[in-house]
Design a protein around this nucleic acid. Structure first.
Length: 573
DNA sequence: GCCGTTTTCGGCCCGACTGTTTTCAGTCG
């Protein structure tokens, strides 16, 4: 039982208690604990009750529940709650604009348990009959249902990757003579995945049976000799395909995709009198096998250097490979610092020093502490006075610590009219300023674009944080004209952020590539709210790689001195 | 449910916005 599984159970308990209108502080205790557990560095299933109780936010009761989950895989309290409400009710809670009170009301008065039932009830005008709900709310709910359906069956990259690596670990242990590799969108590092694809090469006759009896299989969707599909616990589908040794490379290529890349590649094969499929590259005239054992062999036979999986999206990679002009992609090891983090001074979970040490342990040479500004009241955002005092503490601690440099910064809100949330003379005294939108998300495109362009013109803004505001599988980006934003950033010398939070990954790969093409510098930041957050850097780097970024394109691959020299504020001096 | 005590209860974050209201409840960040 890994930490995330325990965290998920606590989070579900919190959701269910909310629907029951339980004591809000009890709910918060479960939610806090869920986050703490998800971020914890050691595996809590191996901890004793005393060790667990030493963790802030985990008391007697929660410690014993963690032990119970570690030993039995489940908590009785959680099961009891689920008996009072159907599990599907939790899907309703994830709809935009639908909270616990509404879910409780919908279930109690209309018996609504699923998104489909809610959709039907809205269409029939039954929802507006409930107290506090009207026709307009019905429309919003219909829209939320439609958005949900659009995302149904998709999963965030880390979820899919984690499920894939557990499955691979199991398969490799059980069938040692067979080679297993992840393919599909997980191998390409796409920000969301529809399913997990695994390729097996070898001759073990038990491979398929081994796959379908995996302990996390919820349901077998299909089972054959060369292809099987299962639905895993948690709703992720996994497909396994078995191919003979001589087709390994061709199958890897074929099943890694993407579709657009494969079509272009097959097209190229055809124009050379060749045919490409999952079994190999063949000559059309006599059917002779030209290549198939490795991917490199296949690309080579098509006159191309091997293309990294992340670039196989049909965005010009074949043309670049033909000229041997593929970028040398940035790696996690190139990253020297992190430029976006929060502490207990606003909505972070750990203090400055704890964050600094965790960043150092994660391999970073520098860290910018960038807490929120005053507009974010719920996060206890900083006004000018507190921001400067906080900056002083950051600098003091930086002097004291070995092996890491702290930069005193801020994540300053961009107000709805585009003004900065803090005065210029305050921003001028900080080392680095990120400007971000956290309010009035529903402005129209003209307003939102003007707002962000105005932020870019502020001479003390160095970086635009999570520039489109998307929350993957949950919230559409705000309506900002990214092209104009990139143009403005290029002219002003403002960097754009790739926020590595797994449900943001914002900029997206496609936008980051446009920014790079226009010469805009990129920073990759974890936006860590706790000491465990620095591990998320890898997901941001994954986006950067898919965006064709090299080490030179990314500001935080530089040393701290080079980085500071490259900031807009210092260049204009 | 956790925490920190002034040791065994009382405090724990809140402002803006929206759609529903006629004074506010629910949701979001």
């Amino acid at each position: 039982m890994d930490n995330l599984a325990i965290a998920r159970i606590f989070s579900e308990i919190a959701d269910l208690l909310e629907i029951k209108s339980e004591n809000p502080f009890k709910i918060r205790a479960y939610r806090n604990a869920s986050e703490t557990i998800a971020y914890a560095t050691e595996r809590l299933a191996y901890c004793t009750e005393d060790q667990l109780r030493a963790i802030p936010g985990i008391g007697k009761d929660l410690a014993s529940k963690i032990r119970e989950i570690a030993e039995t895989g489940e908590a009785r309290y959680h099961r009891d709650l689920l008996e009072q409400f159907p599990t599907t009710i939790l899907d309703l809670l994830r709809l935009q604009g639908v909270g616990p009170k509404t879910v409780a009301q919908l279930y109690a008065q209309l018996g609504i348990r699923t998104v489909d039932e809610l959709e039907a009830a809205c269409r029939e005008g039954r929802v507006r009959a409930l107290k506090g709900l009207g026709a307009k709310k019905e429309q919003l709910m219909l829209k939320a249902c439609a958005e949900r359906k659009q995302h149904a069956g998709r999963h965030l990259l880390p979820d899919a990757s984690e499920a894939a690596s557990l499955l691979l670990e199991y398969l490799r242990a059980e069938c040692s003579t067979v080679t297993f590799v992840p393919v599909g969108s997980v191998r390409r590092g796409a920000d969301t995945s529809g399913d997990i694809d695994i390729l097996a090469t070898g001759t073990d006759p038990h491979v398929m049976a081994t796959f379908t009896i995996y302990k996390l299989v919820d349901r077998i969707l299909g089972q054959g000799e060369t292809k099987s599909s299962v639905l895993l616990w948690g709703g992720i589908q996994a497909d396994l395909r078995l191919v003979p040794e001589e087709s390994h490379g061709a199958a890897m290529q074929y099943f890694t995709g993407s579709k657009a890349h494969n079509i272009a590649l097959r097209d190229r094969a055809m124009s050379r009198g060749l045919k490409l499929n999952e079994y190999g590259l063949f000559r059309v005239e006599d059917g002779a096998l030209v290549a198939g054992r490795t991917e490199a062999e296949i690309y080579d036979a098509l006159g191309l250097v091997e293309i990294p999986a992340e670039l196989r999206e049909g965005r010009g990679e074949i043309e670049a490979a033909e000229l041997d002009a593929l970028p040398h992609l940035v790696t996690l090891a190139d990253i020297q610092g992190d430029l976006h983090s929060h502490t207990t001074e606003t909505d972070g979970r750990d203090d400055i020093e704890t964050m600094a040490i965790a960043a150092r342990d994660a391999g970073f040479r520098y860290l910018a502490i960038t807490d929120h500004s005053q507009a974010l009241a719920m996060a206890n955002g900083l006004d000018e006075h507190r921001a400067l005092a906080h900056a002083q503490r950051v600098r003091d601690i930086s002097h004291r610590l070995e092996g890491i440099t702290l930069l005193a910064g801020i994540e300053c809100d961009i107000r709805p009219d585009g003004a900065m949330d803090l005065a210029d003379d305050c921003l001028a005294q900080l080392d680095v300023v990120i400007a971000s939108v956290h309010s009035a998300f529903n402005q129209d495109e003209a307003q939102m674009t003007d707002r962000m362009l105005r932020a870019v013109t502020c001479p003390y803004v160095d970086i635009i944080g999570h520039p489109t505001g998307r929350i993957l599988l949950r919230r559409e980006p705000y309506k900002v004209d990214v092209r104009q934003l990139i143009e403005a950033a290029a002219e002003a010398g403002v960097a754009l952020e790739i926020n590595a939070q797994v449900d943001r990954l914002d900029l997206s790969d496609a936008h980051a590539k446009s920014a790079r093409d226009r010469g805009v510098k990129i920073v990759i930041s974890t936006d860590s709210h706790a000491a465990g957050g620095f591990r998320q850097m890898r997901w941001g780097v994954q986006v950067a790689r898919r965006a064709w970024l090299t080490k030179d394109d990314v500001l935080n691959t530089r040393t701290v001195a080079e980085f500071r020299a490259g900031l807009r504020r210092n260049r204009r001096l």
